[in-house]
Design a protein around this nucleic acid. Sequence first.
DNA 1: GTCCAGGGAATCA
DNA 2: TGATTCCATGGA
Length: 249
Amino acid sequence: MLNVEKNGDEILFDGFDKEAKDINAFKSKIIKYFDLDRDYSKIKESLASIDNNLKNSIEYGEGIRILNQDLFETIISFIISANNNIPRIKGIIERICKNYGNEIEYKGKKYYTFPTPAELSKASVYDLRKLGLGFRDVRVYNTTKKIVNGEFDLNKLYELNTEEAANELLKLDGIGPKVCDCILLFSDLKRFDVFPIDVWVRRVMNDLYIHNEDEKKVNKKEIKKLADEKFGALEGIAQQYLFYWKREA
DNA sequence: GTCCAGGGAATCA
DNA sequence: TGATTCCATGGA
């Protein structure tokens, strides 16, 4: 549990952590999670020089940082995201934590950690269905099982290049192109040379660059090719600025 | 009642 | 490969 507070030019971090006694360990966790070692001003400068769309979206979302989230948590969360909406995704994840994670107490309130693969593997397909996962229950079950029984090694992904890691992830039930790209971008695999395409990204790319009357007719290949050429190896970060801009503005 | 949500898998051409 | 259809669920 981490509490983050902005106080003028300072940002205060306070939290519960089993390593909190060791201030340096706590510090490095925060630096890692919020990706504080990375020079975003340099990245923004480079992306903003591409065109005015990027420039405007970066101004709008100047504080965006892409987190280094736990790999297993990211995998399960994005499997649940398929054909789903954000409020319900949040509710499902909360129920998973409450039922299979560990209870922690912070300032008199109780919170629940996201379960480890072993902890989540205790859930049957029926258990997951009861938590409201819908048709995603089997996908979460199968993927968790593969990871727990050693059939799939999460750690090897860190050694692979982006394309190789993607091909491995795509072997897991519930992971297709979009979910795969999100895992590569938002987990601590931290690959920026991916471009997750959902309905919003399709919309913003069509509005800004493609101009097709029927946005549903714009295929992913066309968008991906455009992103590769235009944004290059930082396309994943570009996606976040454009997504946030289109979504919020 | 109908539509839609940060898609994927199965099926068929 | 590429296009369709189905898949639970809940809020709008």
